[in-house]
Design a protein around this nucleic acid. Structure first.
Lengths: 227, 227
DNA sequence: GATGAATTATAGTAATCCTATCATGCTGAA
DNA sequence: TTCAGCATGATAGGATTACTATAATTCATC
């Protein structure tokens, strides 16, 4: 695993590679902030272009529409989490510690990647928490999926599912548990922020730790205590 | 519990009560089909009005925008599920059977309600599976929440959380488990349909039963096997 | 049948979502 | 140096969407 991590999403995720030009990188930076502030529905390429200081048409040369732009960012995020997760799971030697380390990693994905100064992982994480599911709950999902756009997420799920099976080979639902853990890591944060009666974690500085402890409990009971 | 179930969503969920007029009922019927076919992004009040046979402005008199319309339908759905869940949990006497019956009920929410002929619960269920989370992952969520719009869902979560605590009073995460079960019941279906590598259930006539068995396993391991 | 309220139809504005075209400026090869 | 080729800017504009204002119509009641 290299120290510097360059993440290159699938080429069907953009019209022109935004990581290849300074303007493209500016668009990515501004897009992350704009998604965070406006959300998918209110974000327009006009506003984004105004933020970047270029024209609407220029943004359209990089991404065909805002849905593609969101999928691009989410895809980048999953690649980054995949790297963090594999790094964390590499050090422990026994399967249980590997899985525990992997789960902890996915509750703390807002570490900065020094190789990519134009992406603020902290803000991107928050964008994925609030907008991420819109990337694959859409009428464009089947087409995107045929283009291999969701491969990063699928591979990440496969990696975690393998760690789950290493701990408990007879567990019948490794993929479901993997996706459920990813979703819990996100929506528990969203609920704590917006709909606190839907969760048992509380908005505070220790939110990530609360979620980590909760997911470890899930692992304990689903896989370890009654093998 | 009455045999006929009339569900009356919060009055901030519409401008004019659609259940009070024949045209309003037609709008609901058409909206459910339109959301199913087009999804939130592609649905417009113009298309919906064309389907109903009225004008765009007429639809606007019932609902201020399509987001409100979606929240209305999802809210109606949660009230319906709440009724089904409580009916199912009423018969058993011991807490474990109550919880099991409740969980089974939420994997089969496409039963028809004879009191409401203008709503096809089967299609509405599918709409909630594919579009439901967009009702509360939105920049309008905080405002809607202040208006009490999500009360039906919160109450449903509270009901299931109580059933969970009755089985396992020391369990620390009853609300999180409740919401997770609701979400699994939906997204496992979505994944089976669109992203099968993210789940272990398979698209077939027995999909509901597969999900039921899976959720019962979750209950078993999280609450029962290691009390 | 007339009156007034409820509802609908018509029309129109502003914004959004794109696409097209042409000019300009920069870069790298001949 | 020149020139081809590409990226971007500038500008325009069309189709659709989102929403609103107002006129027209219906309908119950007196």
């Amino acid at each position: 695993m290299a120290i510097q991590v360059y993440i290159s999403p699938n080429t069907t995720l953009y019209l022109r590679d935004p990581q290849a030009t300074p303007l493209g990188k500016q668009i990515i930076t501004a897009a992350i902030s704009a998604f965070d502030e406006l959300g998918l529905e209110r974000l327009t390429f006009r506003k984004l272009a105004a933020e970047v200081g270029c024209t609407e048409a220029t943004v359209y040369r990089y991404f065909s529409d805002k849905q593609q732009l969101l999928v691009y960012l989410v895809s980048w995020y999953w690649d980054w989490v995949h790297y963090l997760l594999q790094s964390a799971a590499q050090m422990p030697t026994d399967p249980v510690s590997k899985l525990r380390a992997a789960v902890t990693a996915l509750t703390q994905p807002m570490v900065a990647n020094p190789a990519v100064p134009y992406i603020d992982e902290r803000i991107l994480h928050h964008v994925v928490v609030t907008e991420g599911m819109k990337a694959y709950y859409s009428k464009t999902t089947d087409r995107h999926n045929r283009d291999g756009v969701f491969l990063p997420y699928k591979q990440l799920v496969e990696t975690l599912a393998d760690l789950i099976l290493a701990v408990s080979p007879s567990f019948a639902y490794p993929h479901t548990l993997a996706t459920t853990l990813f979703e819990m890591a996100h929506n528990q944060i969203y609920y704590a922020e917006h709909l606190p009666r839907l969760t048992d974690v509380r908005l505070s500085a220790s939110l990530s730790e609360q979620v980590d402890v909760m997911l470890q409990t899930w692992i304990d009971r689903l896989l370890l205590l009654n093998r």
